[in-house]
Design a protein around this nucleic acid. Structure first.
Lengths: 223, 223
DNA sequence: CACGCCGTAATCCTGTCGCAATGGTCGTCG
DNA sequence: CGACGACCATTGCGACAGGATTACGGCGTG
C-alpha cells in the first residue's frame, strides 16, 4: 500500500511518514503541488494526503486536476483550520475526507482505512438523531426536509456531538475540535455556543437535546 | 467558459482573444508549447485552440502529452495550410477538429461550440434554474421566452454558477474562470458583478437567487 | 460624443464571535 | 438538611470580518 503525502511542514510530514512507514505503508512525500502532480501522473497511489496551504498554491486545486484526469484515488485534505466552510469547499471539489489539524495519528490512519475501503464513493453514513440528519463530511444538517443553516462554531459543536451521539464528549475534546492551536479561549465561549445551539434546535424542533455532564462535558440525546 | 489559446502570431492571437472575449469566453494565451503544458497542468479548460507552428516545436506534439495525462479537453488545431494530409495527421493524434488559416472568427466559434457539445467532452446540456435557461455552450440565457442580455462578466459569473447550481463555487474558482492569468484583480470586482447581476435577475424575476457562503464563495439556488 | 461596461474604493450593513455579568442548578460537606 | 461553592445557562454588548451596494472615473465602441 502506498500513499502520496503533500505537505510542506517538515516536522509534521516527517511524523506522518514515520508513523505510516512503521505500519507498513509506503509514503511518497513532496512539499510542492507541482511535484505532486508529476508524481500522481507517474504512478498510482492508494490514497493521497493533501495539505491545503502549500508554497506553490492551494492544495485543493489539485483535486479538480486529478479528477479531470480520471484519477479516482481517494484524497484526504489536511487543513490548519477546521472551518466547516473549508470542509464544504473541499468536499465539493471532490475530496473524500477532511481532517483538521491538529489530529491524532490514529485518526489519520482510521480515515485512510475508511477512505480506501470504499470503492470511490464518499458515502459516509449520515448520522440520524431525532428529526435531524447530520452529514459529518459535508458538514451540513437537515431537519426534516429543511437544511439548517448554522453559524460555523455552532455547527462544529453539533457535528462533533452528533458523531458520538449518546456518548459524553469531553469539554476539552470539544474545544480542541473547534479551535485550532493558535486560537485559544479563556472564557465560556463554548458554553455560549451550546446555549445558542440549543435554542436553535428547539426552535426547529429537531427532536434532540444537548445534556450536560457536570464537570465532564456534553452529550447529545434524541428524545 | 475558458479556453487555452496557443498561438505565436501576435496579431492573430489578439484577434481571436478579442473576439472570443467579447462573446464571454475567457482566454488564456501563450505562444509557447512549454507554457501551454504548464497552464494545462494548472487548470482545466473547456477547449484548447492550438497552432501547429510554434517557436518551440510542433503544436501537435502537445496532444499526445495531454491525452496520456488523461485530459480529454477538446482540441482544435490551426494550421497555415489546409492540406488533407495534415488534417489526417492531426486527427490521428487526437485533435478534435482542424481549421485552416485564414478563417472567419465565426467559424472558429462555431467549431468550438460543436467540439464542446460532443459527448467525449463534458457535454453540458442547457441548465434550467427557476424561470431561467442557461446554455453554457452558446453562452446565452433565456428567462421565460425572452433572451436576457447580460454584460460579459456578469454572464460569465452566471454561467459558472449555473453549471454547478445548488453547489458552492469557490471565490477563487470563479475568479480563475472569469479572468485570465494576466488580468488580476485586487478589489471586490467579483462582488460588484455579483451584486449587479443579482439586481438584474430580480428585475426580470428569474426565479433564482445567488447566495453567499461566507469566506468560501457563491451559490446559485432556485426558489 | 453618448452610452454602457468595468474596476476601484468608500461606505454601509449584517451576522458571528468572544467576553463577561447575572442568575440558576447541582453536589457536597458540615 | 441546609448552605455554600463550583459549575453551567443565558443573554446583551462591543468588536470585527466579510459582503453588499453604489458612485465615480476610465475606456472602448458605435
Amino acid at each position: 500500500m502506498k500513499i502520496l503525502l503533500v505537505e510542506d511542514e517538515t516536522r509534521l510530514a516527517e511524523a506522518i511518514a514515520a508513523s505510516l512507514t512503521k505500519k507498513g505503508v509506503a509514503v511518497d512525500h513532496t512539499a510542492l503541488l507541482g511535484d505532486a502532480i508529476e508524481l500522481a501522473r507517474q504512478q498510482t497511489y492508494d490514497a493521497i494526503v493533501l495539505d491545503r496551504r502549500l508554497p506553490d498554491g492551494d492544495g485543493i486545486t489539485f483535486i479538480p486536476w486529478l479528477r479531470s484526469s480520471g484519477v479516482v484515488t481517494p484524497v484526504i485534505v489536511l487543513t490548519a483550520r477546521n472551518e466547516p466552510a473549508e470542509r464544504v469547499a473541499g468536499l465539493d471539489l471532490g475530496a473524500d475526507d477532511y481532517l483538521g489539524k491538529p489530529f491524532l495519528m490514529e485518526e489519520l490512519f482510521a480515515r485512510l482505512r475508511a477512505v480506501m475501503r470504499r470503492p470511490s464513493a464518499l458515502a459516509e453514513p449520515s448520522i440520524v438523531a431525532g428529526r435531524m440528519t447530520v452529514d459529518p463530511i459535508r458538514m451540513d444538517v437537515m431537519v426534516g426536509e429543511l437544511q439548517l443553516d448554522l453559524p460555523r462554531r455552532e455547527l462544529m459543536v453539533l457535528v462533533t456531538l452528533a458523531k458520538r451521539k449518546g456518548k459524553t464528549v469531553l469539554r476539552s475534546a470539544l474545544e480542541t475540535e473547534i479551535y485550532n492551536y493558535e486560537e485559544t479561549i479563556q472564557s465560556n465561549a463554548l458554553d455560549a455556543h451550546v446555549s445558542r445551539l440549543r435554542k436553535r434546535l428547539t426552535d426547529v424542533d429537531a427532536g434532540v437535546s444537548i445534556h450536560n455532564i457536570r464537570g465532564v462535558g456534553y452529550l447529545l440525546k434524541e428524545h
